[in-house]
């Protein structure tokens, strides 16, 4: 897939690759039980965080299916790292991707994830030409559910007791959105009104 200009800037945030010096900031949320669930590798203890950061630092391109792009969410003013988002390119022929997200609870509820994920979804559909994006969350995570709904993702699956997670029956939700469902009104910006159309040479009409 084509290369990407990083960092990405939104109104209040900068999305940039994870850096070695992020260990402390990432550790603040990475080792929380609620976050454990959907990080790629378990980081139960503080000493695991550096290894997780090392893996995430390399997640900066989507060259082939299976690759992941992971970006730190950094607040513009004070450059504080408040969380992370990632996009995994899971399947090429069917154009499938998966979104993941975590936020430091100290900075949750301020709309940072909404803003970061909006930018990441734009990127997935417009730049990477993904056809369908999905995201998973714990069935009891009301914040995640609200976030998915606010972004316009549809609930596609609600699994009950389909697996054990840390000794307990699990409940998992899958949300998804297709490229044509994402901001449908913006998909027609190139469709100029008829009066403005004839930039074409007359002979071609």
């Amino acid at each position: 897939m084509s290369s990407l200009n990083l960092p990405i800037e939104t109104d209040h945030l900068i999305l940039r690759p994870i850096e070695r010096s992020d260990v402390e900031a990432v550790g603040r949320y990475h080792i929380l039980p609620s976050v454990q669930r959907y990080v790629e590798r378990p980081t139960r203890y503080a000493e695991d965080v550096a290894a997780a950061v090392a893996v995430m630092r390399a997640q900066i391109v989507l060259h082939r299916p299976g690759d992941t792009l992971t970006l730190a969410i950094v607040r513009k003013g004070d450059k504080v790292l408040v969380g992370q988002v990632s996009l995994q390119w899971s399947n090429a022929s069917a154009g499938q991707g998966e979104l993941r997200f975590c936020i430091d609870p100290a900075h949750s509820g301020k709309g940072y994830l909404t803003e970061a994920l909006t930018a990441l979804i734009d990127l997935a559909f417009d730049h990477f030409r993904i056809h369908r994006l999905m995201a998973r969350c714990d069935g009891r995570s009301h914040h995640s559910i609200k976030l998915m709904q606010k972004l316009g993702l549809r609930l596609e699956a609600h699994y009950r007791e389909h697996a054990l997670f840390q000794g307990e029956w699990d409940e998992e939700l899958h949300f998804a959105i297709l490229d044509r469902e994402w901001r449908p009104s913006t998909k027609v910006v190139d469709f100029r009104p008829r009066s403005a159309a004839p930039d074409l040479p007359r002979a071609a009409i």
Binding site: S93, A94, R154, A157, Y159
Partner: peptide, 15 residues
């Protein structure tokens, strides 16, 4: 019904 996946994969040449 626990899941309804739309266009999550290709199957026999279609979504």
């Amino acid at each position: 019904r626990e899941a309804h996946f739309r266009q999550h994969a290709l199957f026999k040449g279609g979504w």
